[in-house]
């Protein structure tokens, strides 16, 4: 049963990811990417990482993709304005992507034999309580530094987005 859910979510994720790359209209790309993110959130639920699934939907579907959609609508991009690479470059890109996939898959096949026995996991790893404890005990300094990163990103975005004054 769970395996079938896994298969369904995987097929949705991969199909929507391919449609992100191949759809002509940028807005359709964004919408398919949102579907991909929902499928990945479903995977997180399947892996007992409920809190991450919720955060993933809020951050990606709720904030980042809305930002993308907003910019695409602001710049009025559509299928007519969409630039396209020539056919040779597209074929080369497809071959390169396929080669990378084959290389990674081959590397993982070798790795798989050496993984060996792994300890049994406890099922409440992904709860907000457990994650909060780890985040604020072991990763407190990176957490604080990330706030500085956000502040600098915000200031950078505002300065970049401002009208140039000559």
């Amino acid at each position: 049963m769970v395996l079938y859910i896994f298969y369904a979510l995987s097929v949705i994720a991969m199909a929507c990811a391919l449609l992100v790359v191949f759809s002509k209209n940028p807005i359709h790309s964004v919408l398919y990417l949102i579907l991909t993110f929902f499928a990945i959130a479903g995977h997180y639920v399947l892996l007992n990482a409920q809190f991450l699934a919720v955060v993933h939907i809020i951050v990606y579907a709720g904030a980042i993709m809305v930002l993308f959609l907003f910019v695409i609508m602001l710049l009025n991009l559509n299928a007519e304005t969409e630039p396209h690479k020539n056919t040779l470059t597209k074929i080369m890109a497809t071959i390169s992507g396929g080669l990378l996939m084959v290389t990674l898959a081959g590397a993982f096949r070798v790795l798989e034999k050496n993984l060996g026995q792994v300890t049994v996991q406890n099922s409440n790893v992904g709860t907000i309580e457990n994650l909060g404890k780890v985040l604020f005990n072991d990763f407190l300094l990176p957490f604080e530094i990330s706030s500085v990163l956000f502040l600098s990103a915000m200031i950078g975005a505002v300065i970049l987005g401002k009208k140039q004054l000559n």
């Binding site: 994720a13 790359v21 993308f68 396209h84 080369m92 390169s96 996939m101 993982f108």
Partner: peptide
């Protein structure tokens, strides 16, 4: 699954010319 998704991402970066799609 992660390998396939990562490769699709790389494919998209090489395949498209629109900078926003590349960021996606």
């Amino acid at each position: 699954l992660s390998t396939v998704l990562f490769s699709i991402g790389v494919l998209g970066v090489l395949f498209r010319r629109n900078a926003i799609i590349i960021l996606m």
